[in-house]
């Protein structure tokens, strides 16, 4: 028995080759997050007790600003991919599932933009 759709048979094309896009993006962001988070946690541990000026000086260091922006992008991309799977697994009302996934994606983009803007403002301010 073939599992191909009639349209797929007619066209004679294979899959769209995008079946693993979500899975792959989750793995790639995971790999990126390991060094980024080790660096971030170590930096924060070393900075505990630092005041406002010291923290701003740290964020404004070019290498730190770049690492923080990369961290923000990887974190929010990874988080929204993961939360999407959780919602797909547990929310069984179709409209609620689509709406909640949409809210998560909008929130991830909004929070990432706000975070990156804050980093850039400090870096260039």
């Amino acid at each position: 028995m073939s599992l191909r759709s009639p349209l797929g048979k007619v066209r004679g094309l294979g899959s769209a080759k995008e079946g693993v896009a979500h899975w792959w993006a989750q793995r790639m962001t995971a790999v990126a997050l390991v060094p980024l988070l080790v660096w971030f946690v170590a930096s924060i541990c070393a900075m505990i007790g630092a005041d406002y000026g010291a923290v701003r000086d740290w964020i404004a260091t070019p290498m730190v600003s770049i690492m923080l922006v990369l961290l923000t992008i990887a974190v929010f991309h990874h988080a929204q991919l993961g939360l999407q799977v959780v919602l797909e697994d547990y929310v069984h009302t179709e409209w609620l599932k689509i709406a909640s996934i949409g809210i998560v994606k909008f929130a991830a983009i909004g929070l990432a933009v706000a975070t990156i803007f804050s980093i850039v403002k400090i870096a260039l301010g």
Binding site: Y52, A114, T115, S118
Partner: peptide
């Protein structure tokens, strides 16, 4: 822990926005 970390990231966002806003917000 993945869900908890997604929520916890909000605190990191607050921390960075506060640092960009000013000293009293940061404190």
């Amino acid at each position: 822990t993945g869900i908890a970390l997604a929520v916890g990231t909000l605190m990191l966002v607050c921390w960075l926005i506060a640092a960009a806003t000013g000293e009293s917000a940061f404190n």
